[in-house]
């Protein structure tokens, strides 16, 4: 059984949002909600200025807080590590939205909760997720963490540094950010606030 993961090399990402648009198309994500979005941040000031382009989506956490809180079992984790929602069971109670520390989940207008699926339907056909397939800078890699020769394993091995979002929460994300542009790693909103207060 594979253990799917994604890596995004932030030293290559230009924040063009091709992935976000591909996702919208592929998954017919309704207006106003997003499986995938880009966060763009400036940190520092000339001559020490960094811009971080950071695509965000469900990280398919290895230890997903969104799953145990679900009262109906609609939110579940597959053996291959994908965290998915069974819309037939979902009562749209929002417990999983509350539990997800990454704003990855939303209420689909049809009355259930949705989010990034790692393109489970494409994986079945042996294709990479739409965002990976479309990325013009080739900064996105995907594959089986347990296979040392998978693109994602290789990218992780070769990266100068590897970060995940909010690691302190113990969610063990399986979306890795490689080579974050800032020396301090992934940027946080509190850094932006600090700058504003200086």
């Amino acid at each position: 059984m594979p253990r799917y993961a994604m890596a995004i090399d932030l030293s290559l990402c230009v924040g063009c949002a091709a992935c976000a648009v591909a996702c919208k198309m592929e998954n017919q994500v309704p207006p106003g909600v997003f499986n995938l979005w880009i966060r763009e941040r400036e940190v520092g000031a000339y001559p020490d200025l960094t811009v971080e382009f950071r695509p965000e989506q469900c990280l398919h956490c290895e230890n997903p807080p969104c799953v145990p809180v679900c009262p109906t079992g609609a939110s579940y984790q597959r053996e291959d590590g994908l965290v998915l929602v069974d819309p037939r069971r979902c009562i749209a109670c929002g417990a999983c939205i509350a539990a997800c520390p990454y704003d990855a989940r939303y209420l689909h207008p049809a009355g259930y909760v949705e989010k990034c699926t790692f393109c489970a339907h494409r994986l079945e056909r042996g294709q990479a997720p739409a965002c990976v397939a479309t990325c013009p800078t080739f900064c996105r890699t995907f594959g089986d963490l347990d296979d040392p020769e998978s693109p994602v394993s290789r990218a992780l091995r070769e990266a100068g540094r590897v970060d995940v979002l909010r690691p302190e929460l113990g969610t063990r994300p399986k979306l890795f950010y490689l080579n974050a542009p800032s020396k301090r790693g992934l940027t946080q909103e509190r850094q932006v606030k600090e700058v504003r207060h200086d």
Partner: peptide, 21 residues
């Protein structure tokens, strides 16, 4: 609940989710 007319609430009583308040 936005799921009211999908009647999925039956699943509350058809599943065992002791970790869910």
């Amino acid at each position: 609940s936005p799921a009211r007319f999908r009647f999925s609430h039956a699943w509350l009583f058809l599943s065992f989710q002791p970790a869910s308040p």
